[in-house]
Design a protein around this nucleic acid. Structure first.
Lengths: 342, 342
DNA sequence: GTGAAAGCGCTAACAG
DNA sequence: CTGTTAGCGCTTTCAC
C-alpha cells in the first residue's frame, strides 16, 4: 500500500513548482525550459504518474470511450462483431463499455440512458428484439439529439437517422437459395426462428424471390417460422408430408435443429436433402456433415461500425451513411451431393 | 439538435435558485422544502436531466465501473464468464469496460495501465498465455498497490495476492479420467493444446493421478501435448501405433480435433473409443456423436468473480479468498457404449 | 519561463 | 430552508 496514485498537485509540491508547470511539462509544452521539463518528467516516471482519466474526460468533454449495446453475448455473431469493434477501438485508442440488452426493450433503454450521461462519446448498437417488435426507437433518437452519435449494425431501422452497417440480407438469402437450386434442389423448405426480426423478414423475402424466379410458384407450406422449441417437431411434420430435397435455415438455431432433425428422420445430407444455413465456422466445420453457411463476416461488420463511429466523432459534419458488407457462401459438405448412383 | 445535455447550473439559473439547492433537491435532501424539490424535479424531468457521470465520478472518486481483461473473446468459455460478470454487474449497477489481451503480455500490461488510471474501481482478469509463460505479474501487483483490487479467475497465479475464482482443474481431470475408466476404458490417451497454461498442467496431473491409481502405471506416449495444427496428425499416428479405447481432450480445440480425427480414422465413438472433452453445450450437443464434457460453469465463475470484486469494493478489509467452483460432467453419447455384441 | 486562476459538472460542509 | 464556497484532478488562458 501507500503507493497510492500520485497527482499533478503532489508532483508540483514535491518539486516546489506550480501545478501548471507540471502539467505543461508533462505535455512537453514549448513554454517550459528543458531543464524543468526533464525534472518533472523524471519524477513523474519515478512515481509512475498517469493522468487521471476521469479528470481529463471532465475537462475535455470527451471520454475516448465507445458504448456497445448488444442484444446478447452468448451468440457467435455478436461476439464476432464485438471482437471487430474491439480491434479497431483499441487500435484507435478507444475503450469500449459493453452492455447487454438481453433482447429487452426496457433493458436497452436503461443501457442507453446509463451510457448517455457522459460516460461515452458514441454508441454502437444492434436493436433488441423487443424494441423491433414494439417499433419504439425514441431512445436512440434522444441519444443522438443529446450529442452521442449512434451507429447501428445488423438490426437496424429506417426510423432512426444515423450511420448503419448491414449486410444485404435480402440479396444474400437470394444467393443462398440459388445455391440450393443450382445443385438441383426442387423442393426447398425455409426454416426460421427469427421471423420477428427485420433481418428474418428480409431473408424470407430473398428466399421467395429466388424460388419465384426459378420455379414460378411458391409453396407457403414449405416456410416454417417458429421458435427453437417447436422447430424440430414442425420440421418433422413437414418432412413426413412433403417431399423436400433442400433446406435453407436462416439462423443458427434453426440450422442446428434442421441438421439434427433431418438426420434423425433418416435422411442423408446432402444426398437426400441438401442444407445451407447460418452458423459460425467452428460449429459449421464440426457438424456431420459439415454445414454450408452464409458467412456474415461479423468481424468485418464490427470493424466497420467502429471505424464509422470514430470517423463521425472526428468530423461530425457528414451525411449519414449506410454501409453494406459483402457476404459470401462457405460451401461445405451439406451441399455437396455425391454423384447420383442410379 | 439543440437539446444538448442540461446541467445543474443551467437548471439553477432557469429556476433562479442556487446550484446546491438544485443538487440537493435532486438527491431528495431533507434540507430542501417540498415545494422547491418539486419545482426542481419537475424541471429536471422536463429537460431529461441526468447527472454527468464523469463529474460524479471525479467528485466521488468512484466510477462504479469494473474493468475486465480477457485473453480472448472468441472463446466460448470466456464469453460465458463475461456474461456472468455482466449479469452481476448490471444487477449491482456497475458498468463493465472490456479489454482483450489477445494472450499477449504487452497488450495485457497496456490494458491494465489504461484501466488503472481512474477509469475503474476494480479489475477482473484471466492471465494471458504469454504472461503465464513469462511469469511476470508485476502489472497486477502494481494495480493492486495503486488501489484497484484485482480478482483473477481460471488463469490465476500464486505469485499475486488477490481474490481468485477457479475450478479445481486437478480434481476435475481426475474425475473425468475416472469416468472413462468406469466405462471400462483401459488405454486412455490425453490430448492437449494448452500445455503452457497452468490449468493445462493441472489437468494433465489429474489425469496421471487417475491412471496411476487405477492401473499402477502410465504410458507417457499416450499424452499428446501439441498445438491445434499438429494435433490431428499426432493423434492419427498414435491411433495407428497404440491400441486406444478412451480419449480425454482437455480443451475445446483438442476435443473437436479428437472427435474429427477418431472418426476419420474409421473408429466408432464410443464403441471403439470413448471420449470426454471440454466444450460448450451448444457444440457438444451438435457433434456426432454428442460429446461428453467437463462442464466448467463459466457463467457461475463470472458471477462469482463479479460478486467477489464488488464485495471487496464495498468493504476492503477482509482477507483474500480463493473460491473454488464446482464442476460436473455432462454425459452425452461419446461415453455411452452400447452393449457389447460379442 | 513560470505561476495564478478559472472552470469542466457535481457534491457537501458550512454559513446564513 | 437556501446559498456560498471549496474541491475532486486536470488543462489552459492570461499575467507576471
Amino acid at each position: 500500500m501507500g503507493k497510492r496514485k500520485i497527482t499533478v498537485k503532489e508532483l508540483a509540491s514535491i518539486l516546489g513548482v506550480s501545478i501548471s508547470t507540471v502539467s505543461k511539462s508533462l505535455s512537453d509544452s514549448y513554454e517550459i525550459s528543458d531543464k524543468t521539463k526533464a525534472r518533472v518528467q523524471k519524477l513523474a516516471k519515478k512515481y509512475n504518474y498517469k493522468p487521471n482519466r476521469i479528470a481529463v474526460n471532465l475537462k475535455s468533454g470527451k471520454t475516448r470511450t465507445i458504448g456497445v449495446v448488444l442484444p446478447s453475448i452468448l451468440n457467435n455473431f455478436f461476439t464476432k462483431v464485438l471482437y471487430g469493434i474491439e480491434r479497431i477501438a483499441s487500435q484507435e485508442n478507444y475503450n469500449i463499455i459493453t452492455c447487454i440488452s438481453y433482447e429487452s426493450y426496457d433493458k436497452e433503454v436503461s443501457n442507453m440512458q446509463i451510457l448517455s450521461n457522459g460516460s461515452i462519446d458514441g454508441l454502437i448498437v444492434a436493436i433488441a428484439e423487443e424494441s423491433q417488435i414494439k417499433g419504439d426507437f425514441d431512445h436512440f433518437k434522444e441519444s443522438i439529439e443529446e450529442g452521442n452519435p449512434v451507429v447501428m449494425f445488423d438490426r437496424v431501422t429506417d426510423l432512426v437517422d444515423c450511420d448503419k452497417v448491414v449486410v444485404d440480407d435480402y440479396n444474400n438469402a437470394f444467393i443462398a437459395t440459388k445455391h440450393l437450386i443450382d445443385i438441383d434442389c426442387k423442393n426447398i423448405a425455409l426454416v426460421s426462428t427469427i421471423d420477428f426480426l427485420g433481418v428474418g423478414q428480409l431473408r424470407v423475402d430473398g428466399f421467395k424471390k429466388a424460388i419465384m424466379e426459378s420455379f414460378g410458384e411458391l409453396d407457403q407450406d414449405l416456410i416454417i417460422t417458429t421458435n427453437t422449441e417447436n422447430l424440430e417437431y414442425e420440421l418433422t411434420q413437414l418432412l413426413a408430408n412433403k417431399k423436400i430435397d433442400g433446406v435453407f435455415a436462416i439462423d443458427e438455431d434453426s440450422s442446428l435443429a434442421a441438421v439434427k432433425t433431418i438426420k434423425s428422420q433418416g435422411y442423408h445430407i446432402p444426398n437426400d436433402i441438401s442444407i445451407i444455413g447460418y452458423a459460425g465456422a467452428k460449429i459449421a466445420n464440426n457438424l456431420t456433415p459439415t454445414l454450408t453457411t452464409v458467412n456474415q463476416h461479423g468481424i468485418t461488420i464490427g470493424k466497420s461500425a467502429a471505424k464509422t463511429l470514430i470517423n463521425r466523432l472526428n468530423n461530425g459534419d457528414k451525411e449519414y451513411k449506410k454501409k453494406i458488407i459483402e457476404v459470401d457462401i462457405d460451401q461445405r459438405e451439406s451441399t455437396m451431393k455425391r454423384k447420383k448412383i442410379l
